[in-house]
Structure formats: C-alpha cells, structure tokens
Design a binder for these strands. Structure first.
Length: 447
RNA sequence: UCCCUGAUAGCUCAAUGGUAGAGCAUCCGGCUGUUAACCGGAGGGUUGUAGGUUCGAGUCCUACUCGGGGAGCCA
C-alpha cells in the first residue's frame, strides 16, 4: 500500500497516517512515523509525544501490556532521547485534553535511530543559541507554525495572481547592474572577467514582461547588501512583484488591498491552529477588510507634525514615523504620492504636482512597517533619460529598459510585497528572521 | 557606519572586591493519566581572549573577539 511518505506499511493492519489526519481515524489502527518530541513518564506509563512533521500526537504506552507483546520495548522507550526517530503503531482514541483531540494507545513501536542528547531543550534559549542551530530549531512548535503560515501565504499569493489572469514570469537573479542604483548589491564572479550582481528587485524585468504579457508577476528571492541590523531586515528575502500594462496608481492601490485581504483570509481559513500556537490575536486579523485607509503624503506629514514628531515635508518616513501613522488604524494604510526626490528614477510624476511621484507604500498595522512599495512607472523616454543622468546611473545598462518606451510605451504600474514582513505581521512575530527557514543576516550565514 | 547592551556549568541565569550557585538538560532511583509532569540522589567550571589595578578580581580599568537591540536605507 502506497502512503504519503512513499513507503509501504511494514506491518499489516496499521494504516500509515499523517498525524494531522488522526482526528478522522478514531477507533482505527494506525502507524505514525516521526521523531520523539517529548516524553513524560509515571512508572508504568510513558507518554510519548511524537511529531511527524504535520503535527504532534501523544502515544500512551502501558508497561505491563507492552511487556507481554514486545519484551524490553517499554524500558527502551523510557530511555529514548528527545528527537530520536521512531515508528509507532496503535489505536486512535478520542482525548479531549490533547491539542489534536486524539491520542494513540501504543501497541508496538520501532526505534529507527537513537538520538544524541538534543541541544534544544524545553527551557528557554537565547536567539544566538537558536540561530546557531536553525536547522534543528525549525523542528519546534512555534517555528513550525510560523513556517506553515509562511507557506500558506506564498500559496495564497500565487493563487491570487493566477486566478486573476496574471502570468508568472520570473525575473533573473543574476543581473548585470543595479536596478535602482540606490542600494548596495552583492557582487559575484560571472565566469571569466565578468561581474554580476544578485537581484535586489525583479521590477525592471517585470515591466518588460508586462509589455509582453499584459499582467504578470515575478516571485523570487531578493538580495540586499545594506548593513541594516533591525528586526525588519534580512540580506536575502522573498518578494512578489506584480506589474500591469495599461494600469494606473489607482489600479495598483486596489490590487494591493485585494491581495492583502486575500492572503489574510486564506491564513484565517486554513491556519487557525498555527495562529493559536503563536498566540496571535485573531480578531486583529479578522478586521483586515477593504477598504484600507488612504493617506496622501502631505496629510501623513501633517499627522506626524500634529503628533509632535520632528518631521519636515520632503523626507522619507523612519521606523517611528511609520509606527505613528499605522498606529492610527486597525488595518493596513496606503500612503501615496511621495516626494519624487526620495523615490526611484522610474517613478512617474504626479501631473497635479510635479514634486510628487505616483507611488504608494502599504504600512502594516501594529508597527510592522512597510510591507509593500510600488506605483505607476514613467512612460516618457526623454524624462527617463534625464532621471538616469540625474541619478548618475550608467545609461548603457538601461538601454534595454528604454526600449520598452521606444516600442509601444503604455501607462503601467506595479508593486513589490515582502513575504517575510507580511508573515511577521500576520504571525505577530517579533523578528523577520523567524519568518524564513534559513535567515541570511548581517554577520550570520550559518547554518 | 553610528548609538546602546551583553559574554559565568551543555542551556537559561545568580553571585557587596573575599571558598562559583540555582533551575533545566545528562546519569541513577521512584511513581498507572502526564501536559515545560512530579519527587529523591549524583556528576558537571582555566567565569569569551590578552593585559593591568589590588594582599585578593566573575566583579574595577584598557584593548580585542564574538553576539543581541536600535538608527540610517529599504520589502
């Protein structure tokens, strides 16, 4: 019999079942393959918490009974170190005290590998200790919950765009030069005598893809070599970047709202147990409905001044500014029409006010800061050539990009959403480093 | 790059300038319903590195190394 693990059941009569599906198997004989998560014992009883990757199930072994059928096994189970791998077999029965709602009455067990003393214990550990052992840390409950929610967010993002007629057209990771030239890039050797840079944004390519396919998105890792050292920064993170031909700033602002509402709804629908593990206040997520508040940059500046922050028109928002603005609302806020001087060279100017760019940032609630940045792109080639010169960018490197304006330029717009920041907000996680399986951080690339 | 902060048992932490301690983990023993299970016992240390002050330094001073938090920039 084929199983979800791709292995056939070794013992007739026991169906191999993923722990998460055990509640539907009450009264049946099952086999669970996993690792010993924790054990409690009271002499003739062992309570074995076994995790199989999908969930954790408690198996109860009664010494005298087990001794009759499998002599010596009970004692071995009582001495089995945490994270030893084992296969358990037994009958599923309802157990309201268990988080899963069921437990297994142990009838047989196979110890696959006895683990060495496991470094991550039930007590607290420092971030340094855990990050050093990220490859083991991801076995624990909260990391499991966070990464399962992250995976659901990623699926929601793809479903959202696929269902709305966007084509997935990925941008390259090796790029010949800076996309924006404003931030530091990771330089790598690209075979002989050639340097390449790891992508810090797929956007310029997404614009080309949009001119080819209309509505597109790219989704991949992004690399920033800035020496940022905060709970909102990673060297390597994932970003989805939709781009639409014949679209305006207003169109992408609606798209931002719809995407975020869609993601939150998907997590609320399918990841309630994980949110509970993380002790997330679900009411705050349930409040995430359209429409989101919209704030003109100049109004945001007024708000900050009214709140007593030393902010001058023309500047970019710092972390305290973002927190103050988003603190006014119970859902993400869209701040639009920033000064062009603080935005990228390709941003389209506001026809109503030439000092402004038709851009929009989405600030997550509860102080999680910017999760989206985007806007409408400049269409006029002469304007772009002027901006490239002003930003002191090498024009040759952008000739292909200027071709998009030479051959059928159209109004278009798009944005980028950061997966880890979104995950941190939805999970209520303090630091984005827990929102990616293997974080790449300033001064830490291990494991 | 700048500011703040930390490094003591495997882990998390304590110790007025005067014999280095606890909880957990580990090992041994006990317990039929545990939920970070609990109870009893045992082993476990060149106090990050180098130098200095002192009769005496985990503690005070200097430098270095490696972390953590934050700023700027950004998603």
């Amino acid at each position: 019999m084929e199983t979800s693990h791709g292995m056939s059941s070794a013992d007739g009569g026991y169906e191999v079942v993923a722990a998460e599906h055990l509640p539907a198997k009450v009264g049946q004989k099952v086999e669970v393959r996993g690792w010993l998560y924790n054990r409690r014992s009271s002499g003739k009883l062992h309570f074995l918490e076994v995790r199989d990757g999908t969930s954790i199930v408690q198996a109860v072994a009664y010494g005298p009974d087990l001794e009759k059928t499998h002599p010596g096994l009970f004692e071995k189970l009582g001495a089995l170190p945490q994270e030893s791998s084992l296969i358990i077999r037994g009958a599923v029965k309802a157990s309201p005290k268990q988080a899963l709602g069921v437990e297994i009455g142990l009838e047989a067990a196979e110890i696959v590998a006895v683990a060495e003393p496991y470094p991550i214990t039930k007590k607290e550990h420092s971030p340094e200790f855990l990050l050093e052992r990220r490859h083991l840390w991801i076995r624990s409950k909260m990391q499991h919950a966070t990464l399962r929610i992250r995976a659901r967010i990623i699926k929601a993002i793809r479903d959202f765009f696929d269902e709305r007629g966007f084509l997935c057209v990925d941008s390259p990771i090796f790029t010949p030069s800076a996309c924006e030239g404003t931030t530091d890039l990771f330089e790598v050797d690209y075979l002989e005598d050639t340097k390449a840079y790891l992508s810090q944004s797929g956007q310029l390519y997404a614009e080309a893809s949009a001119m080819a396919f209309g509505k597109v998105y790219c989704f991949g890792p992004t690399f920033r070599a800035e020496k940022s050292k905060t709970r909102r920064h990673l060297r390597e993170f994932w970003m989805v970047e939709p781009e639409m031909a014949y679209a305006t700033l207003d169109d992408v602002m609606v798209l931002m709202e719809e995407l975020i509402v869609f993601i939150v709804a998907a997590v609320l629908k399918d990841r309630r147990p994980e949110l509970a593990v993380l002790e997330r206040d679900v009411k705050k997520l349930e409040a995430i409905q359209r429409p989101f508040p919209r704030l003109h940059y100049s109004d945001a500046v007024e708000l900050l001044k009214k709140k007593g922050l030393p902010f001058e028109w023309g500047g970019d928002f710092g972390a305290p500014d973002e927190a103050t603005i988003s603190g006014e609302y119970d859902r993400p806020v869209l701040v639009h029409r920033f000064p062009a001087a603080i935005k990228a060279f390709y941003a389209k100017r506001d026809p109503q006010d030439d000092r402004l760019a038709l851009g929009c940032d989405c600030l997550a609630p509860e102080g999680y800061g910017e999760i989206i940045g985007g806007g409408e792109r400049a269409t006029d080639i002469a304007f772009l050539e002027k901006m490239i010169a002003e930003h002191k960018l090498p024009k040759e490197a952008f000739e292909w990009y200027l071709d998009l304006r030479r051959y059928g330029s159209v109004p278009h717009a798009g944005f980028g959403l950061g997966v880890e920041r979104t995950t941190a907000w939805i999970c209520g996680t303090h630091h984005v480093r827990e929102c990616i399986p293997y974080p790449r951080m300033l001064y830490r690339i291990v494991p």
